[in-house]
């Protein structure tokens, strides 16, 4: 339990936290803005990683590979949106169906369960190896942080456009949105596509960072993402009110999650139990609003009867 070991593990935790932060921002869009818990992400994260690695192994440029991975992620969101809106399947089930289907698709993309990429032979954007002893502009923490700032700026702009406002209105109040001429189905599909596009991009970065894409790399992504969203909100909601900063807050939440995780590992907790811990922590945080209503609610002041008889 040498404290130095913990410190030396920190940069890695921050880099991972940042990459997962992009996933978390994607999840924020569906979970907070559209009010949908989208389980597609457990599959689309791997899809992004698999596409990126396979493209690079076949000689494509890293930027092209990441763009295609993002588009692949968006297609997975399109599939879930199709299940949900066109086929009328409840959102949560639609996501589960996509996730299951993607398992096969991801295997087919990679040809096997795991595909490694050698950082010495390929020109990767981020890597475990680019954390220490590299110039700052090559440092993965710096690269991903810049990437997040750019993404947040892009999303900030988008959610201020007519289309973005329509999407926010859809998540807030479907009846009102339709009454104002918004096609809520289109909005939902679009939101799912943007969200999973971001998750695909995060998968591409994660696969490069760890040096391989793995069929199980997305397992529990939704829970990690939700944890990041919730921790980020709890930690920053008093300081950040602007939408853009809220997204940054989510990324910060993700970093905090990975730092805590690193501390837990350093304390010597059995790593097999980590997912259980994550699940419990997220469950408790998700219960907070409900408990607050149920046990700490102030009695509502009732107005006179509706018919004022």
């Amino acid at each position: 339990m040498n404290i130095l070991n913990l410190f030396s593990a920190m940069p890695g935790a921050v880099a991972q936290g940042l990459i997962w932060g992009i996933t978390a921002i994607g999840i924020y869009i569906t979970f907070r803005i559209l009010d949908i818990a989208d389980l597609t992400v457990d599959g689309s994260l791997c899809t992004g990683g698999a596409v990126c690695i396979m493209m690079m192994l076949s000689g494509h440029n890293v930027v092209v590979a990441m763009l295609v991975a993002t588009v692949a992620g968006m297609v997975t969101g399109l599939a879930t949106g199709f299940f949900h809106t066109f086929m009328g399947i409840p959102a949560i089930l639609a996501g589960i169906l996509s996730q299951l289907g993607l398992y096969s698709i991801n295997l087919k993309i990679m040809g096997k369960a795991n595909q490694a990429i050698n950082v010495d032979k390929y020109d990767l954007l981020v890597s475990l190896r680019y954390i220490k002893g590299v110039p700052f502009y090559k440092n993965s923490i710096f690269v991903v942080a810049i990437g997040i700032v750019l993404l947040v700026l892009l999303l900030y702009w988008f959610f201020g456009t007519e289309l973005g406002c329509a999407l926010r209105a859809t998540g807030c109040n479907g009846n009102m949105s339709r009454a104002q001429g918004i096609n809520t189905n289109t909005s939902k599909v679009l939101g799912l596509m943007i969200s999973n596009g971001l998750v695909g991009l995060a998968g591409a970065l994660l696969a490069q960072y760890q040096g391989f894409a793995d069929i199980n790399m997305g397992r529990g992504a939704i829970v990690i993402g939700l944890a990041a969203v919730i921790i980020g909100e709890a930690a920053t909601s008093r300081i950040f009110h602007n939408f853009g900063f809220k997204l940054i807050g989510v990324a910060i939440g993700s970093i905090m999650y990975y730092i805590v995780l690193q501390v837990v590992i350093w304390l010597g907790v059995d790593t097999d139990l980590l997912k259980l811990l994550s699940a419990l922590v997220v469950a408790i945080f998700l219960a907070m609003p409900y408990w607050r209503r149920k046990y700490f609610a102030k009695p509502a002041v009732k107005k006179g009867g509706k018919d004022n008889a």
């Binding site: 988008f158 959610f159 201020g160 456009t161 007519e162 289309l163 973005g164 406002c165 329509a166 209105a169 949105s177 104002q180 001429g181 918004i182």
Partner: peptide
């Protein structure tokens, strides 16, 4: 949002 009822919504400013 109401002002844009019946119009095509794209990437123009939301307000």
């Amino acid at each position: 949002l109401a002002k844009r009822r019946g119009k095509v919504r794209f990437l123009g400013p939301g307000i």
